Amino acid sequence: MSFISLLKNNVISIDIGSFETKVVIGCKKKDQLIIDKAFSFKTPDSAYMNGYIKYNNVLVNKVTNEFVMNNVKSGICYLSIKSTDIITREITIPVIEKKDIDGLLKYQLAEYLPMDYSKYVIQHRIINKFIEEGKEKLNISVIAAPADMVDMHYNFVRDIGLRPVVLDYQPNCIWKLFCFSNGINGKIKIEDKTIAAIDLGHDSTNVTIIKEGIMKINRVIDMEDIKISSKTKELTIEKSSESEDIGNLCDKFSFYNGNINNIRTSLESILNRIDRMFKFFLSNDIGCGIDYIILYGGLSKINEIDKLFFDYFGIPTMILNRIEKLNTLVDINKYINCLGLLIRNDGV
């Protein structure tokens, strides 16, 4: 049996979702992403929820079997995570040396993040530098992930026989990929636009707003109380090359289970929550508008969902289907987190 060679500095990039797990094997070389292989499979029921591994042995067995079927052996692993329990904040501090930022944050974080720091892994990223009242200051993005969540992902990677190297927050993956690319869908230049990238996942929706290449805000919207049936989720996975019309989905939905809520009601609930987030962003960035909405993720496969978003928000909306600087045709929409994981900029 021949296995994929990892001698070319290839990385095994994994995006575990509550409904589907995606894997990309490749690397970033100079100004291009080189992809050797990409595959996906259904995540075992209830094994992974809201960023937590609930049944490690079940998930390990499933992933290990899929690796054997796809001729993947050992190597370096990058893993992405997303959870409503991950806390993010943007804070402002005076300009200081990079090596001194961690120390300063320890004293200032209590003002922004009232929590038990011993239970979180905290990291930061410099967003930009600006001048306020004649003094230079830094905008810092801080992310705090539950320590037990980080530990369980580290142990999981070791259990599947890989070497854990990177655990990255999904909005960070999206931001890096969009900045790395020359354009989105062949026409949107991120450096002079404000875009809202929306991951319409099966169990959560993630909104990342990027203004002129700078990630301004990201939030994970919990969809626990928004019921979308497993049959609808399966339909969005089955239709990898063609989309399903909302009306047809509803017909099939009713055929399989007449008591399930209409999918239009679920989508409307999602739109309402996204609208509140947009209003929060715009209220804190006076004079700014959102130029484009970019949709991706499982539910973005529903045909004309971009039209639904445009009708609701009045903002040009499109489904993500293309980025530049990629060496092969791969489903960008599906593997976006895995691709963004491959890009490491100054260790972030």
Rank of each mutant, 00 (worst) to 15 (best):
I81K: 05
L138R: 03
A38H: 06
M49I: 01
D159A: 06
T43G: 08
N56F: 03
N57F: 11
I315A: 00
D100K: 14
S141V: 08
G103R: 08
L341N: 11
I270G: 05
G26Q: 06
K8V: 01
L113M: 14
D159Y: 04
E224T: 13
F313E: 04
N10F: 10
D192G: 07
S40Q: 06
E133P: 12
S80G: 11
I198L: 05
D199G: 04
G103Q: 09
S74A: 10
S40L: 05
I290F: 02
P44Q: 10
L295V: 03
K325Q: 09
G247F: 03
N65H: 12
G134V: 03
K252F: 10
Y154G: 06
K239T: 01
Q108L: 09
E234P: 06
F278I: 14
I188T: 00
Q32R: 14
R219T: 04
N182E: 14
E97C: 03
Y292T: 08
S229N: 14
C173N: 01
E268H: 14
H202S: 12
L339M: 09
G258W: 05
K82D: 08
H153Y: 02
D275M: 11
R219E: 06
M215P: 08
G347W: 01
G103L: 06
F130N: 12
T88S: 12
V150Q: 02
N10A: 15
D116T: 10
L326W: 06
K106C: 05
S5H: 06
D116G: 11
V63A: 10
F3T: 11
S240K: 15
V24R: 02
V220S: 01
C27F: 04
W175V: 08
T205D: 08
D31T: 11
N185C: 10
G103M: 11
V157R: 00
G201A: 01
K252G: 06
V207S: 01
N337M: 10
K193D: 00
D100H: 10
V348K: 14
D346E: 15
K119W: 03
Y78F: 15
V60L: 05
N182P: 05
K22E: 02
S266I: 11
M149H: 07
E97I: 03
G347L: 01
K22A: 02
V207Q: 00
M115T: 07
V72F: 10
S74Q: 15
E244R: 09
R273Q: 15
N321H: 00
I25P: 03
K252N: 11
G26D: 04
I198R: 02
Y55T: 07
C288V: 11
K211N: 11
D291E: 01
K54D: 09
V142M: 14
P146E: 05
K189F: 09
E234F: 15
Y335N: 05
F280Q: 13
L342Y: 09
